[in-house]
Computed example of a mutant assay.
Amino acid sequence: MGNASSTLTQYDIEEVQEHCNNLFSQQEIVSLYQRFCQLDRNAKGFISADEFLSVPEFAMNPLSQRLLKMVDGLNFKEFVAFLSAFSAKASMPQKIERRCYK
């Protein structure tokens, strides 16, 4: 899972699910992994600030510079944990914990 060009194993999926308090289904994690790999253009295993800024919606966000401080250099597991704060299934304490993750 460290290399973005590798594929997720069942173990990887379950590990990410557990890390994120089961807020995402296995299919959602696979979809997030595919998106992560698209963003990680150099297959470094993490997403740089420049790669995040390549997403027009992110780059146009007036809070993008603040968000970059939180997301720059996230690996896949951290990426999913960060996104879990936006899940409707997450409790308020979980959202706060994830927001302060990095």
Score class of each variant (00 low, 15 high):
Lys44Tyr: 01
Met60Pro: 00
Gln65Met: 14
Phe36Trp: 10
Thr9Tyr: 07
Leu8Gln: 04
Glu51Val: 01
Asn42Trp: 01
Ser54Leu: 13
Phe36Arg: 09
Glu57Asn: 13
Asn21Val: 10
Met60Ile: 01
Val55Phe: 08
Gly73Lys: 13
His19Ser: 14
Leu23Gly: 00
His19Asn: 03
Asn42Gly: 09
Ile47Leu: 09
Leu32Lys: 08
Pro62Leu: 10
Phe24Ser: 03
Asn21Ile: 10
Glu51Leu: 04
Thr9Cys: 08
Leu67Lys: 05
Val16Asn: 07
Leu68Ile: 05
Phe46Arg: 12
Leu39Arg: 13
His19Tyr: 06
Leu63Asp: 13
Gln65Pro: 03
Val71Asp: 08
Gly45Thr: 03
Phe46His: 15
Ile29Cys: 09
Leu39Cys: 06
Phe79Glu: 03
Val80Ala: 00
Gln65Ile: 11
Lys69Trp: 02
Gln34Phe: 02
Ser31Asp: 15
Thr9Met: 05
Val16Thr: 06
Ala43Gly: 09
Ala59Tyr: 02
Asn22Leu: 05
Leu67Asn: 01
Leu67Met: 13
Glu18Leu: 11
Glu78Thr: 01
Asn22Tyr: 10
Phe79Ala: 11
Phe52His: 11
Phe79Trp: 05
Met60Thr: 00
Gln27Met: 02
Ser54His: 07
Ser25Lys: 09
Ile29Trp: 11
Cys37Asn: 12
Leu32Trp: 08
Glu14Leu: 14
Gln10His: 14
Ala49Ile: 00
Pro62Lys: 07
Glu18His: 11
Arg66Gln: 15
Val30Phe: 00
Val80Met: 04
Phe46Leu: 12
Lys77Ser: 14
Arg41Leu: 13
Glu78Phe: 05
His19Ile: 04
Asn21Gln: 15
Cys37Asp: 06
Asp40Glu: 07
Tyr11Trp: 11
Thr9Glu: 11
Met60His: 05
Ile29Ser: 07
Met70Thr: 07
